[in-house]
Design a binder for these strands. Structure first.
Lengths: 159, 159
DNA sequence: TATTGTTATACTCTATAACTATA
DNA sequence: TATAGTTATAGAGTATAACAATA
């Protein structure tokens, strides 16, 4: 069960030991791997993974409120404020206070934001296809299913 | 294929759209989820996930060199220096310069470090079991296999 | 009273480059 | 010249708490 990581230490025959079975570590390494790939594939768009997620989510949910978006993406509200303001300053999104709840903040893409997302989409798709190209389509689907099952496990973390 | 995340937005019916199929996002969310769990399960040991990984790796590979360890754990060398020094100051590891290469730095657990790892092990195991308890043993094994296959995909990133 | 967003602070992690001492 | 580790700096992400406005 630990063969793969145990031998993967192509460097100096590093033994991962019990850690080779740690899903926590595997997830961390996989995420780093995926992010590195992301930066390679989408570098010319000058967008970070988090920003891209936010932009795409706003496109799918025009007028979504900051807090709702933050919870969906597991981003702290304080941090979401910073990211949203940055995207607003970059002219990619618009932030408006709804009439029915003047505490809230609704997010929408500007035309430029929409254009940016449209420009990124093909590269994003290519990134996913290439980064996970070592897996068969079936394996990738299984991986998605398992990760979704894992995520649905517990109640969403409170803020 | 996207049903789960699309409905999982229990909050306000958030639609993940194309992002629901993004393995990159799923990995990020899963890792956050796992880390949050880690802190809950191992809080009393006052150890962060990264530090724990380093300690366990040193236990499995006494005398491993900093650079080799950094590459195995996908940690930048500069960062590894800081973490190793911190662990040394905490009395958990010893750092020695080997005779055959005076540029290098070998890492070993101190008796206290060994004790710390021994104390953490059961909680770590419990954390993994509990955090991934929503998956069957078979599913967890499949998840490990798929992540390992993904990680073995490309050549290790250069520093 | 509780909630939404905001501000402020601090710490971790990451990225980069320049530096040293060895090889 | 190249490598192992170090130092310095900057930025991104995160965690926390306190705050104002509103509900």
């Amino acid at each position: 069960m630990a063969e793969m990581l145990d031998r993967a230490a192509s460097d100096d025959a590093v033994r991962f030991g019990p850690l080779a079975g740690s899903l926590g570590l595997l997830l961390r390494l996989s995420q780093l791997h995926s992010f590195a790939d992301f930066y390679g594939a989408l570098s010319r768009h000058a967008v970070r993974p988090g920003e891209m997620s936010i932009l795409m989510m706003i496109r799918e949910n025009p007028g979504i409120r900051q807090g709702v978006l933050a919870k969906a993406l597991m981003i702290k509200r304080a941090h979401m404020t910073k990211m949203a303001r940055r995207l607003e300053e970059a002219g990619l999104i618009r932030r408006t206070v709804p009439e029915d709840d003047r505490r809230a903040m609704e997010l929408r893409l500007t035309p430029q934001g929409r254009a940016r997302v449209a420009a990124m989409a093909p590269d994003l798709e290519a990134h996913e296809a290439q980064s996970f190209g070592g897996l068969t389509a079936k394996e990738a689907a299984t991986l998605r299913t398992l990760l979704r099952k894992y995520l649905a496990l517990e109640a969403p973390k409170e803020d």
